[in-house]
Amino acid sequence: MFLNEGDSAPDFALPGAGGETVSLAALKGRKVVLYFYPKDDTSGCTREAVEFNALRDKFARAKTVLVGMSPDPVKSHDKFRDKYELAFPLASDETKRTLSAYGVWVEKSMYGRKYMGVERSTFLIDATGKIAKIWRKVKVPGHAEEVLKAAEGI
C-alpha cells in the first residue's frame, strides 16, 4: 500500500515509552507529525529525535503533536527517551503492521545484502486525520525545521 498526500492517515494504537498507549484517534483534532525511524540510539535516529525534541515548544505553538515510531520494543524506547530526555511519545510497532500500513517497512540494501527495514519517513497529518505532507527517504540534517515550517503553514 502506498499512501499519498490527501489520503486518510491509517489509525493505530500501539504501546509506547513510559507505559502509555499511543493512538492516532486520541490525537484527532490536532495536527500530528508522525515520524518513522529505523532504530533507537543509533547516530541518525538520535540526531533526528534530538532535533525534533529541541523544536517541541515551537511545534506546540503550531498546535502540532510529535510522535516517533520504530519497530524497537518499549524497553528500548524507554531507555532512548530517558537518555536523551525526549518529551514526546515513542510508539513501538514490533508487529510492523502500522509501519506496513504507512508503506515504510521496505526492502533495503547495504553492501549488496538485502533486508527489510524502516525507510526513514515523516507524515504530517492535519487535524481532520488527512495526510497533509509526506517526506520519504529523509535526510536528517535540517529535516525537523522543514517539518515545523510545513506544520505552521497548515
Score class of each variant (00 low, 15 high):
1 M>K: 14
2 F>I: 14
2 F>E: 15
3 L>K: 04
4 N>M: 02
4 N>E: 13
4 N>V: 00
5 E>S: 07
6 G>P: 02
7 D>Y: 10
9 A>L: 04
9 A>I: 00
11 D>R: 01
11 D>T: 09
16 G>N: 05
17 A>L: 03
18 G>I: 05
18 G>P: 10
18 G>S: 02
18 G>D: 03
19 G>D: 09
20 E>M: 14
21 T>R: 08
22 V>T: 07
22 V>G: 10
22 V>C: 12
24 L>W: 00
26 A>N: 11
27 L>Y: 05
28 K>L: 12
29 G>K: 05
31 K>D: 00
32 V>C: 01
33 V>H: 05
34 L>G: 07
34 L>K: 10
34 L>Y: 08
35 Y>N: 09
35 Y>E: 09
39 K>N: 06
39 K>F: 05
39 K>R: 13
40 D>V: 01
40 D>R: 03
41 D>S: 14
41 D>F: 04
41 D>V: 09
41 D>M: 12
42 T>K: 01
43 S>I: 02
43 S>Y: 04
45 C>D: 09
46 T>D: 06
47 R>G: 12
47 R>Q: 15
48 E>K: 01
48 E>I: 07
50 V>Q: 09
51 E>Y: 11
51 E>W: 05
51 E>F: 11
53 N>H: 07
53 N>E: 12
53 N>Y: 11
54 A>D: 13
55 L>Y: 04
55 L>Q: 10
57 D>S: 14
57 D>M: 08
58 K>C: 09
58 K>Q: 15
60 A>W: 07
61 R>I: 00
65 V>H: 12
65 V>L: 02
66 L>K: 05
66 L>I: 10
67 V>K: 05
68 G>S: 01
69 M>G: 03
70 S>M: 08
72 D>I: 13
72 D>H: 13
75 K>W: 00
77 H>N: 13
77 H>K: 10
77 H>D: 08
78 D>L: 12
78 D>K: 06
79 K>I: 15
82 D>H: 10
84 Y>W: 14
84 Y>N: 15
86 L>W: 14
87 A>E: 15
87 A>G: 06
87 A>W: 06
88 F>G: 03
88 F>D: 09
88 F>A: 02
89 P>E: 01
89 P>Y: 05
89 P>C: 03
90 L>G: 08
90 L>D: 03
91 A>F: 09
91 A>N: 05
91 A>K: 01
93 D>C: 07
94 E>V: 11
95 T>F: 08
95 T>D: 13
95 T>I: 01
96 K>M: 11
97 R>T: 15
98 T>D: 06
99 L>G: 04
99 L>I: 02
99 L>E: 04
102 Y>A: 02
102 Y>S: 09
103 G>F: 08
106 V>R: 13
109 S>Y: 11
111 Y>I: 02
111 Y>F: 15
112 G>I: 10
113 R>P: 04
113 R>H: 13
113 R>Q: 13
117 G>M: 12
117 G>Q: 04
118 V>Q: 07
120 R>D: 08
120 R>G: 00
123 F>S: 06
124 L>F: 08
127 A>E: 15
128 T>H: 05
130 K>T: 15
130 K>M: 04
131 I>K: 10
132 A>F: 04
132 A>D: 06
133 K>P: 08
133 K>Q: 13
134 I>T: 00
134 I>H: 03
138 V>L: 00
139 K>H: 11
140 V>P: 09
140 V>D: 10
141 P>F: 02
141 P>A: 02
142 G>F: 00
149 K>Y: 06
149 K>M: 10
149 K>E: 15
151 A>P: 10
152 E>G: 15
